[in-house]
Design a binder for these strands. Sequence first.
RNA 1: GUGGGUGUAGCUCAGUUGGUUAGAGCAUCGGAUUGUGGUUCCGAGGGUCGUGGGUUCGAGCCCCAUUACCCACCCCA
Length: 405
Amino acid sequence: MINALRGMKDILPPQNEKFEYFIKNASRIAKNYGFEYIETPILEETVLFKRSVGESSDIVGKEMYEFVDKGGNNVCLRPEGTAGVVRCFVQNKFDRIGSVKRFFYYGPMFRYERPQKGRLREFHQFGVECFGEDSPFEDVNIILMLKDILDFFGIKYTLKINSLGCDKCLPPFRDNLVKFLTDIEDGLCDDCKRRIKTNPIRVFDCKNKNCQNLLKDAPRLGSMLCDECFESFEFVKKTLDSLAVPYEVDSNLVRGLDYYTKTAFEFVSGDIGAQNAVAGGGRYDKLVEFLGGRATAGIGFAIGIERLLDLIEPDKIEKDGYYMGALDENALSIIFKIGYKKRKKEKVEIAYKTKSLKAHLKAADKKGVRYCAVIGENEINEGKVWVKDLLKKEEYSIDIDKFSE
RNA sequence: GUGGGUGUAGCUCAGUUGGUUAGAGCAUCGGAUUGUGGUUCCGAGGGUCGUGGGUUCGAGCCCCAUUACCCACCCCA
């Protein structure tokens, strides 16, 4: 037997229905906010992610599905969606037009991690990206859209926000912090020692009490923001307040991707296990330039679809459509033909073998359809179809022509 | 990469200190006299007990290895 690879799942009923339902409504909401659907390739040049997500990140450092293709290109399955959209933006020279562009997308992402609850090697994201808009109104706008999507599906969450600073205030802060951490390195846990090099801000998140004690006097990002970043962050908070959107400022909120600047946010849920981030995003004003385009502001988010689907209650299945069956050999070809016609308007399932009326009703019930339509000897003689409404328990006979029109 | 847990029927699981032919519920299929469903009753099919070794007169049960899945660390959506 051949099994799916570790961490890769088939999308089956009833999950498939939830998946479609989510895509349909998330897309509708994104369109209401002026975003357009785009698709970018699942396979990209490896260097795209090395340059954008960052070589120091875990995602690029150890989680990518990388290989050399037959043309000798170093390629990889995308581990996230933003880089590809930015590449597309630059390649199509949208950066030269100078107008605001808003895109949304969804599809599979791949990361070679150890699977656990809420973490798969192939998973799906729904994401949006906005280019060319540096107003902090857009930061709020993006958060509101994400909130609208989660609210639509009735999901409970906590919104966490933070400012990561920009290329003016973040590097000096990082240098200070690394200097501080290096001085106390001997007392830190192994994970934190590693973080000094990989992602120093992460140390604030460490669960080790000893580390937390040592960090009491560490420099804090909030106090290091430059005027521009500070004002921008204040504006975002003030605007969220004015809209009565609850949030928590989490100074430990760090995005694992190198390209984020200024506003960062995450929607977390306590109901889906340790991997509690349902959606996350933020601003990345330097990324377009970094990937060879003209300096263009950018901001976006991504939703982990599987994680979100875990939080949606399965819909009550409503009975709809027809089941059609024959009691008589001669009726088989008749129901096949009128079933074909009926399908122009309705969902129709056709049984290819004759059965007793009882067996047909039983089968129709099992299929979850609303109506059971049957033709037997009597109906052939009269040119009619016998139909039973399984919900109302009413039955009637109708002319075949009328039934299938 | 590191830890912990679990592998018995399609699914969820029982299975005594090791002892005859491995069980239940659900699901599937068939039946309960003539063309009336869900919820009743009866019956049937379906298992190399994850895999490979070992101990034993005898292993689903004990030991070792291996593999898959789950959960957590880490990391992230």
